[in-house]
């Protein structure tokens, strides 16, 4: 045994002692510093999840308001804003539900609030009600004419561009600028009240466009002509052309 010990160069035991000290030190320090619940369910601190869910809730959710304000919520349910949660305009409401007496919610009455959604923006989906606030009763707060809880227009809009702003603006730049919407679309009165249920019609035949664009049409000479017999016979015209901004110039 002794002879075997003697054969080991003295460097080895010296370094081994150092290594053992380092390893023991590492294990001791590690067991002290690593949180006890680390790695319980995965490679993370299990209690972190409980810390995260303890974050304060600020938005109360749309159901809560009806408990006290059932009249307003009821009115809203029947109108266009039925899917707009109360807190969209009134802000986070948890503090108010906990202490309704002292915490009041904001109610934006200024004219600049409603245009956040309803100002005309070409990127907005067509059919979404939009106005140009500079020309739409400037200076008047929106709520003088519209009830935000039941925002039907005081007068049924006469003009198509009240809702179809993007199309109206496109058309105003096109050669069809003087063609009224109703020349091509049949718009039942119901369309203005229930736009998504009663829809406006579109031209059904090629001959309809041919009334102006056919070779022998009795229209103004400058209007471009096509031979209906040979020109794209498989399609109705608007399947290729966009009548609000026809590309042929």
């Amino acid at each position: 045994m002794k002879s075997l010990w003697g054969k080991i160069p003295e460097q080895i035991p010296r370094l081994s002692v150092l290594l053992v000290i380092l390893v023991v030190l590492f294990i001791v320090v590690r067991s002290r510093l690593v949180p006890p619940d680390f790695g319980k369910y995965g490679h993370y601190r299990a209690s972190a999840v409980d810390e995260i869910i303890s974050q304060e809730i600020r938005y109360a959710g749309h159901e809560v308001c009806a408990e006290c304000h059932d009249d307003v919520v009821g009115a809203k349910k029947a109108g266009y804003h039925k899917n707009v949660a109360c807190e969209v305009c009134h802000g986070p409401a948890v503090a108010h539900t906990e202490d309704p007496g002292s915490v009041e919610l904001r109610a934006p009455r200024a004219r600049r609030y409603c245009p956040l959604c309803h100002e005309y923006r070409p990127s907005r989906p067509t059919g979404f009600p939009q106005i140009v606030s500079n020309s739409h009763n400037p200076m008047k707060p929106c709520i003088t004419c519209h009830d935000p809880h039941d925002p039907k227009p005081p007068v049924t809009p006469k003009e198509c561009h009240a809702c179809h702003g993007a199309i109206a603006r496109t058309k105003s730049l096109s050669h069809h600028v003087y063609v009224p919407c109703t020349r091509c679309h049949e718009t039942p009165d119901e369309h203005k009240v229930r736009p998504r249920i009663v829809v406006a019609s579109k031209p059904k035949t090629r001959e309809f466009c041919g009334e102006c664009h056919a070779k022998d049409a009795p229209s103004e000479k400058s209007i471009p002509r096509v031979d209906l017999a040979t020109h794209g016979e498989r399609y109705v015209c608007w399947q290729c052309h966009y009548p609000h901004l026809p590309e042929a110039r």
Partner: peptide, 23 residues
């Protein structure tokens, strides 16, 4: 974003979904 983890674990929906006026 945590999908509002403190809300969805309490049977609520994320704040952004809650307030989106057009769903």
């Amino acid at each position: 974003c945590t999908f509002c983890y403190h809300r969805i674990t309490n049977k609520m929906i994320p704040a952004c979904v809650e307030v989106c006026p057009t769903q």
